[in-house]
Design a protein around this nucleic acid. Structure first.
Lengths: 249, 249
DNA sequence: CGACCGATGCTTGTATACCAGTCGTGCCGA
DNA sequence: TCGGCACGACTGGTATACAAGCATCGGTCG
């Protein structure tokens, strides 16, 4: 007959370090940091060669990224980094706001019931955010951790994956413009406001603060768009362009 | 130099009918309808053989399904249909509720501003739902269409993909138990309530009705779980089982 | 009789080969 | 000069081959 395997807990044996995961992480990072700018052609063959792997993990990663909306694949034509589509950015904003605001509703009524470990984590995170001379990348990381931990606090940590997908589009849009530390320090203050409200058990206030915060992030994107409209795709009918075939000599 | 291709609109030339999409749709359907029951082993080779394709599209589909949480892949061990995890079902419920309720908030203040075409579509849909002798599968389809159209009505139709992912887990759980037409006719009535509130411009009422409706769906799942707890995974540490190695003769 | 231990056949992961489709290019003829 | 057509370089989609790990079975040895 059959026999059971793996009784309970295979902590990281599941999340194995596979080539595909590495490639996916690399490609996603390069897309989000604009190292691969919107509209850029992503040849499976080229990527495979430059990453030192075969087409298979590259291809599988591109499929995942296309599901995420960060990449568009045109069969027999090419794969391209998605244009920064304001509609998609707005969708991402809507989704993120819906999830994060709803999670606040599910916080325990009494602040005493909050997981003290997570609360500590949030406090330490906010302290880090206040550290002078903090780099932009560092702030991005802390920001991510803050929002994720907040979700865990309400017991909806698993919804983070959805937020991440949405955040991808937002972050990419934000990086299009200059994004100074002054702005980020403002965000840090908003984070404090949110946590204070949560710890005070004032959920409506927390919601308001969170909404204000997320809208500020979105407005940041809109500001960038107003200043540099050419960076955004105006028509959703994208225009793939076959890359130059450059032959030297 | 380069030359532009595909100026504007490639309506369905993009969503090409590829082997992978067909395989993905088939596998997903079989998982959701429990034709592939929770815990079942899904061998890439077997699936490829039975579907008449190679491992490649099968494998890519399994990767997508695993991202969706419907399948779990254990490297060098096997791929399995995910157990119906109550935690995951609850997560799905949370996500769906968050998105659908938030979308109602963004409905235009005046009912007159609603897209009349979509309103008609909703009305026709509800009429269909009231048709006597409606099969369960048909009702499921109408239900899907109703919720999707409602999202489009508030301009957030693109969030439907997220809801679909969540709905997958919910629907699978619901199918575990008997699900009679009496229940579904109750849901149809709730649909009417929601649409009435929307058309009356009473967004708070619409939200309440929607929340009640979605919770009823979730309670349906909980009811099934109470009656047949053995169908659900009690521990999240899943237990893959290698399929019998059956040798005939 | 029980514990070890290698052979074996499965699994998924990765690499490679081949295919059809989509252009750019340049020859070739009117 | 200009139009047309075929070739070739590229694309992603699919099929196949190979690699590495795990579990079971059956033998052997203590």
């Amino acid at each position: 007959m059959t026999a059971p395997r793996y009784d309970e807990r295979m902590p990281r044996s599941n999340r194995q370090r596979t080539s595909r995961r590495a490639v996916y992480a690399t490609l996603r990072r390069k897309v989000l940091t604009l190292e691969f700018p919107p509209g850029a052609a992503l040849s499976e063959n080229e990527l495979a060669a430059s990453l030192g792997v075969s087409r298979t993990p590259v291809r599988e990663s591109l499929i995942l990224l296309s599901e995420e909306g960060l990449v568009q694949v045109f069969p027999q034509v090419g794969s391209f980094v998605s244009r920064v589509d304001p509609a998609k950015v707005a969708d991402a904003q809507f989704l993120r706001e819906a999830v994060e605001l709803a999670s606040l509703e599910d916080l325990p009524g009494l602040p005493a019931e909050l997981d003290p470990e997570l609360v500590d984590e949030l406090r330490r995170n906010l302290e880090e955010q206040r550290r002078p001379g903090l780099g932009l990348e560092d702030f991005f990381e802390l920001d991510e951790a803050f929002h994720q931990t907040l979700l865990r606090l309400s017991g909806h940590g698993s919804a983070w994956a959805t937020v991440v997908s949405a955040k991808g589009h937002l972050d990419r849009a934000r990086r299009l413009g200059l994004y100074d530390t002054a702005t980020s320090s403002g965000f840090a203050a908003q984070h404090v406001e949110i946590l204070d409200a949560v710890l005070a058990g004032d959920i409506p206030l927390a919601r308001t603060a969170m909404r204000t915060h997320l809208r500020a992030v979105f407005d940041d994107v809109e500001r960038i768009r107003a200043r540099s409209p050419e960076l955004f795709a105006t028509d959703s009918g994208t225009v793939p362009v076959r890359r130059n075939i450059v032959v030297w000599e």
